[in-house]
């Protein structure tokens, strides 16, 4: 619930507080002043965006689905964002048929508009669901606390990408895990969520 200590921030509002994550697409700077570019909230001296577009950057862990092949170059990957992912065939030791689900890291973003991936791990066939990018940190939780609880209480293996794709293994109570994820997405801005989710999963 929004309380007296939380303030809603709109694009164009000045931000003096600390910004938690990479500011691309979230905050801009002009004449040494920071302005919000998306809706967010200020809580406990920190600015947290409530909705934003995922802007890929090197080092980001991502979940993707192989959606095509470029002969001689590599594989095209759907990363739920505005540029396609690209896995170069050179040096690749695994097979990646269409619809393979992968977990990887962003190596670089090419000017032509490709997100080149590295450290690619092929995942067994599971479910891939998508969540808004701004909610990913909440699903991870402080020190991975939220993600740990979901995995423990449902027995489902989970890989989470900063790009908003979540891979869920087929074993365990997948329906329960998805229910928890949906609840976090719709209540991410509400305090005490970790306790609420823990309780929901304990039933």
């Amino acid at each position: 619930m929004l309380d007296e200590k939380t303030r809603i921030v709109l694009p164009g509002d000045v931000i003096r507080e600390k910004v938690n994550r990479n500011e691309a697409g979230i905050v801009r700077e002009e004449n040494n002043t920071k302005y919000a570019m998306v809706v967010g909230m200020v809580r406990e001296g920190k600015f947290i965006p409530l909705e934003h577009v995922y802007v890929p950057k090197p080092g980001d862990p991502v979940v993707g689905v192989v959606s095509g092949e470029r002969r001689g170059i590599g594989y095209v990957v759907d990363l739920n964002t505005y540029y396609p992912g690209l896995i170069l065939s050179r040096g690749l030791r695994i097979k990646l048929p269409l619809s393979s689900q992968i977990f990887a890291k962003v190596a670089r973003i090419e000017s032509g508009g490709n997100i080149v991936l590295t450290d690619v791990k092929r995942l067994p066939m599971g479910r891939v669901v998508d969540v808004p990018a701004a909610k990913v940190p909440r699903i991870i939780g402080r020190d991975m606390a939220m993600l740990k609880i979901i995995k423990e209480k449902t027995g489902v293996d989970i890989y989470l990408g900063f790009n908003g794709y979540i891979w869920l293994g087929r074993r365990g109570d997948v329906a329960k895990a998805i229910k928890a994820i949906k609840a976090i997405v719709s209540k991410a801005h509400i305090k005490g969520l970790t306790d609420e989710i823990t309780e929901m999963l304990s039933k």
């Binding site: 694009p11 302005y35 701004a134």
Partner: peptide, 11 residues
């Protein structure tokens, strides 16, 4: 646009 989180300079 605010609902989608698409960045804008000002409302």
């Amino acid at each position: 646009l605010l609902d989608a989180g698409i960045p804008i300079k000002d409302i």
